[in-house]
Amino acid sequence: MLDRLPRTIDPLHLADKRSVIKGELSLKDFGRLCGMLFDTGGNVAIELHFSREGRLAKIEGKIETRLQLICQNCLQPIDWPVQAPVRLGVVNSLEQVDRLPPDFEPLFVEEEKMPLLDIVEDELLLNLPQYPKHSEACQIQETDSRVPTRPEAGRQKRQDNPFSILANLKNQENPHGSTKK
């Protein structure tokens, strides 16, 4: 187990050594995730076990954190706990993806080393809701412009009949002095 988390890792080398990476990363360091958060304070606890099963290098473990997402209805914070299991198979071709066990997701490795933050951030993003919103009705402060207010509601009742204006004109005197009835 490592005392301090490395910035980059070599998943194949760590799998050969059967290494374990355990520690915390700051939420502020996740660039893609930060734009979706109400507050970037806090950490992500990670525990990743690297191993091999035959020729397959795999990463198993868990990621845990509490995120403050932005509600898409009221723009207020939502507390979103994340306890995500990690099951990745290290691959470098589509052939290898087809041979992965069904409960493993592929982790494409193009170079020897890759940022640890990218792996963790991808797993966090996969565990977010598509449209975060409160489970109960939001307390929206703004009024809906389509709903008439009290004075407009009374006026609407008088104008229910679109021909009511014509009826009033029929009963009025003609401006040229003639009164036809």
Rank of each mutant, 00 (worst) to 15 (best):
M1D: 01
M1L: 08
M1F: 10
D3Q: 15
R4K: 15
R4A: 11
R4Y: 12
L5C: 06
P6T: 00
T8E: 15
I9N: 06
D10T: 02
L12D: 03
L12M: 05
H13S: 08
L14S: 01
K17R: 10
K17P: 00
K17M: 06
R18K: 12
I21K: 12
K22Q: 13
G23K: 09
E24D: 02
E24N: 05
L25F: 09
K28V: 09
K28C: 08
K28Y: 07
D29Q: 11
D29V: 14
F30I: 01
F30M: 03
G31D: 14
L33A: 03
L33C: 04
L33E: 03
C34P: 07
C34I: 11
G35H: 06
G35K: 04
M36F: 07
M36V: 00
F38C: 13
F38V: 09
D39K: 13
G41T: 10
G41D: 14
V44Q: 04
V44G: 00
A45L: 07
I46L: 13
E47C: 11
L48E: 06
R52D: 00
R52I: 03
E53V: 02
E53T: 02
E53R: 06
E53I: 02
G54L: 02
G54V: 05
A57V: 04
A57G: 14
T65L: 12
R66A: 15
C71I: 05
N73R: 14
N73C: 07
C74W: 09
C74N: 04
L75D: 03
Q76W: 14
P77H: 14
I78T: 04
I78F: 11
W80R: 08
P81A: 06
V82R: 13
P85E: 11
V86N: 07
R87V: 01
R87A: 13
R87F: 12
R87G: 01
L88D: 04
V91W: 03
N92C: 11
Q96L: 12
D98A: 05
L100T: 01
P102N: 14
P102L: 14
P102W: 08
D103K: 06
D103F: 00
F104K: 07
P106C: 09
E110D: 12
E110C: 05
E112Q: 09
K113D: 02
K113T: 04
L116F: 00
D118E: 13
D118W: 08
I119Q: 07
E121F: 09
L125H: 03
L126I: 10
N127Q: 14
L128M: 05
P129C: 08
P129K: 08
Q130M: 12
Y131S: 11
S135C: 13
S135I: 15
E136G: 14
E136H: 15
C138I: 09
I140W: 09
Q141I: 02
R146K: 13
R146E: 12
V147T: 07
T149A: 12
E152Y: 01
G154N: 07
G154F: 13
R155P: 00
R158Y: 11
R158N: 15
Q159P: 07
D160Y: 13
P162Q: 03
P162G: 01
F163W: 15
L166C: 05
L166E: 04
A167I: 03
N168S: 12
L169P: 01
K170R: 15
N171E: 15
E173P: 01
S178M: 12
S178R: 15
T179M: 11
K180L: 07
K180G: 10
K180W: 00
